[in-house]
Amino acid sequence: METFVFDGTLEGLLTAVFYCYQKKSEKVKVVSSAHFHPDVFHQHFTVVSEDDKAKRVWAGLRKKLDPGWMLNIYKAFLSEQPQAFQHLLDFARYIIDHEQGAETNFGNSDVLAISQLEHKVHREKHRMEAFIRFQKTGDDIFYAHIEPDFNVLPLLIKHFKNRYADQKWIIYDLKRKYGLFYDLEKVEEIVFDFTEEMSPSLNALPARLLDEKEELYTILWKDYFKNVNIPARKNMKLHIRHVPKRYWKYLSEKQG
């Protein structure tokens, strides 16, 4: 078995698929350089990402798969799980080597793994669409930060751009240290140097930076959340299943 080490990007992974064919490899173990521990008994091959090689593999997959499945590949990749890279490589080879329609073979462990990874990432994306709580700042920007389990920011652009077409907004991923900024025209990637007063350890912005009405709507939202509850039906187990505790930090209605 050969070991391929790639740079952790989607482009790199697709380039690795290309080399599987060029080198006529049989079983290939794929590892991202971040997870790779070299050992003296095995040789490895370092994959250098190449745009045109990656594009050829992508185009090859697109001939066999519908746009939904192409998106599934991207979503599974955004899971950033080490085992996802292996499944993606094997899945790509399985699709290329077989007749059209092979992606519906849920008896194949890679097909199943991709569809399950996709499912997890999609759920996280959906959760972010639900749990993001904007605060309006003094300069009319709606700001929120999050720490999603997977790298879902790229998947959120369309949703928030369509929805909040007439307001400026920022969504910042504290874990991966980058964010999205919509300026009423387009969405751009941004990186902050956090100052002390806007520290990532705070779950909200300090009052000084906020719009004067922000406090009112936070209070009204908390009031509303309390008032729609029916105590006779209390079911904390279900509550926590729907709103896992790790997300509470950024939900204004769950703050004391």
């Binding site: 077409a165 959340f225 729609v228 509850n229 904390m236 509550h239 299943r241």
Partner: peptide, 22 residues
Amino acid sequence: KGLGDAEGTGICHTYTEDGRCV
């Protein structure tokens, strides 16, 4: 280019302590 978009699947923005969607 107004506010909001109601296309597609719904979103539960939070859940009350009785486990119902808000």
